[in-house]
Structures are given as C-alpha cells and as structure tokens.
C-alpha cells in the first residue's frame, strides 16, 4: 500500500507516513541513511559518503540493537526470567538501552558504570529506573568490567549477566539488522563500511553481513590514536581488555583518530550539516574522509553511533 500523502510537506523514513506500531521496541533499527554533502566538499567527485544515524533509535544510540537482541536471546534461552536482574558493565549507551528495554519489559536492571561518564547519561539511567553502581574513574571501562564480574560471581543466581563484550548476540544484532538495512538503503552500491570500535559488535556483525553480500566490500575500523583519549565509548584496543567478540583479522584496515580532530569534526557536523552527533561520530567521519581521499570512486557508509545531546555538558563543543 502506498502510504504517501498528497501535498504533505513532511517526510518520513520511508518517504511515506510511518505506520503506528504496537510498542516502542518496534522502533529499534531501520534508522535513516543520509548523504553527507558539506564537510565532504574536498573529496574526489566519484566518492559519496552516507551516514547511518543511529541516534534515531528510541534509546538514542546504536546500542538499542544489540541490547534488545541480547535480552531477547536470553529470554528465549531461559537465562532471563522476571526473578533475575539484568546486569552488565557499560560506559553509557548500552546501559541506557538495557534500562529502557528493561523498563518496558518489566525487568530490574543494574549497571556498573565508570564514575566519569557524562552527567546526562547518569540522569537518563536513573530516569529509566535502573540501579547504577559506579566504578573507579581511574580504572576506566575495564574497571567497570572487573567490578561487574565480581558482583556476578558473588551472586550468580540473582543476575542475568548479558556481557556485551563476549555475547555473540551483540554482533548478531548487526548481522541481522544493520547490514541488511545498509544493503537495501544503498541499493547494494556500498563499497566501504566505516565504524568506530567500542565492543566491536557493530563492525563485526555488520561487516560479516556486508562481506557475505559482496566480498569486495571493505570494512574499516576507526579507533582512538592513544590509550588516554577523549572519545567516549571507544576503545584503544592495544591498551584494553580485548572483547571476545572482536576479531581484528576480519577488518581490512584500521584508521587512528585524534581526539581534538574528532571533536572539531563533531562541531563541524553540527555547524555545517545540521547534525548534532556524539564525538564517536566525529571520529568515524574523520576516518571516512581520510579513506575517501585515497579513492577515485566508491560509496562509503559511516556509522554515527549516537546523537550529541548526551554530551552537551562535556567539552566537545568548546572551540
């Protein structure tokens, strides 16, 4: 059925009116893909860059996809029942996803979060009713991982630990949703996929699906250029606990991102494109632009993991 409304001066994701859905869960995924035209002025004319705007998910980030998949797979396996508490360590976005999905489905949620995550994230987790346990900021996300394991080992019967760093449902969510969406949205023309790495779930799962579709599609990761960086959510793999779901040998290349340059790109995205994104989007776009300059032609899809609203209290926006 063609749901387009004649004369309507608004547009929806599909070009038609979006149909009503039964639950907020149904709004996860199917995010927009948008051509980035302004900050890309100096790239070769045969190269296009499209950004996948994951901030359009109900929880405001790409992590809604794996969180929902991990929860639903745990339900199917009988690991997650209403008497169990969802437990995991997170630097923010996965926690927000667990928190709202848990609220909707009626599960209690406990999250171990480094004490230095942005204030907006802490407030969002509380708003959804999740219990937040702060780990030592000096220990970063690895400190949260260790504290979370300790909580679980002390009380295994109390919790369902979803373990986003080692749970195969995390990359599988992207294999089943993000990958097919990108193939459909680019009508199969994608040549390069660029994403930043935190758990590695996005790049692993999407990359596998894209390479199955066409094996010459290149999959390129962007990671912070040093262990002490300012790119919230991203991991410098050489100095971190490497997630079990991350398999570097499946990547075609890695591009290092400098924090200040990524911040600048994040600000340019807001000022020149009208896209308020998080700093990991700025880092990913920085990588995509570097890649674009080495190509004669191609269609690059770059993941923008979240919006910028959760970072307004941080120093990203200071020129």
């Amino acid at each position: 059925m063609d749901t387009r409304v004649a004369g309507a001066d608004y547009r929806t994701r599909s070009g038609g009116v979006r149909e009503a859905v039964g639950s907020v869960i149904d709004l996860v995924g199917n995010t927009p893909l948008v051509n980035i035209r302004n900050v890309t002025r100096d790239i070769p004319p045969g190269v296009e860059i499209y950004a996948k705007l994951e901030g359009y998910n109900p929880g405001g980030s790409v992590k809604d996809r794996p969180a929902l998949k991990m929860i639903e797979d745990a339900e199917k396996a009988g690991r997650l029942t209403k008497d169990k508490i969802i437990l995991d360590s997170t630097s923010g976005n996965t926690g927000i996803a667990y928190a709202w999905i848990g609220a909707h489905k009626g599960y209690r949620v406990e999250l171990v979060v480094p004490g230095n995550v942005s204030e907006e994230r802490k407030k969002m987790l509380s708003a959804y009713g999740a219990k937040v346990i702060f780990s030592d900021p000096l220990e970063g996300s690895d400190g949260a991982i260790r504290l979370c394991w300790k909580l679980y080992v002390d009380n295994p019967e109390k919790y369902c630990k979803l373990d986003q760093y080692n749970n195969p449902s995390n990359p599988l969510a992207h294999y089943e949703t993000t990958g097919p969406e990108i193939i459909a949205q680019t009508e199969g023309r994608i040549t390069h996929f660029v994403a930043s790495i935190g758990t590695g779930g996005t790049i692993m799962g999407t990359g596998r699906r894209l390479k199955e579709f066409r094996k010459d599609i290149k999959v390129i990761a962007v990671e912070p250029d040093s262990p002490l960086h300012g790119l919230e959510g991203l991991k410098h793999m050489a100095s971190s606990i490497v997630p079990g779901i991350y398999h570097e040998e499946e990547l075609d290349d890695k591009i290092p991102a400098d924090t200040e340059e990524s911040y600048e790109m994040t600000r340019r995205l807001a000022k020149e494109e009208g896209i308020l994104a998080g700093q990991s989007s700025g880092a990913a776009l920085l990588g995509a632009l570097r890649l674009a300059r080495t190509l004669k032609e191609g269609l690059i899809v770059v993941m923008f993991p979240d919006g910028g609203d959760k970072y307004l209290s941080t120093r990203v926006w200071e020129d």
Binding site: N116, I145, Y165, G198, T199, T202, G230, T314
Partner: peptide, 10 residues
C-alpha cells in the same frame, strides 16, 4: 589524573 570520558560502547 582522571580521563574526562569512559570508553567501550560501539
């Protein structure tokens, strides 16, 4: 010395 951010998301 405290990093302003916490890592590990995507």
């Amino acid at each position: 010395i405290i990093p302003a951010i916490a890592g590990g998301m995507c």
